[in-house]
Amino acid sequence: MKAEDIVRVVKAEPIQIWNQHLMSKDYTCAFASDLMSDALAMIQDSPESTVLITGLCNSQVLRTAEMLDIEMIIFVRGKVLGDEALRVADEMGFNIFTTKLTMYEACGQLYEAGLRGING
């Protein structure tokens, strides 16, 4: 699913668009967790094509994404990054969004629209 379609499905607002070209990129799956160790354990096979969805909103989410080569992050429940985390984000090449949906709603709607999990 293209990034622009993912954003439309969950009615997300941009926090940072680092690379506009990535908005037309196809993402094959998503992973949702508030536990960064779970993210670090689970998404290592095709992270460039994985969207990270999380309710945790701090610079460690960005560091986790950096280590995994994840390019697209969606924060749920309307959360936005604080100033310190925004400074970290600015150093990295992510496209970051926020949606007012809950984690459950965001995942459900994306799954229904065709974006699968990391295990297919």
Binding site: L35, M36, S37, D38, L40, A41, Q44, L56, N58, Q60
Partner: peptide, 16 residues
Amino acid sequence: NLGFGAGMGLPNIKRV
């Protein structure tokens, strides 16, 4: 609160 402490650190490190 940072998203760590799930007890997956050392097992993750060993696995990769």
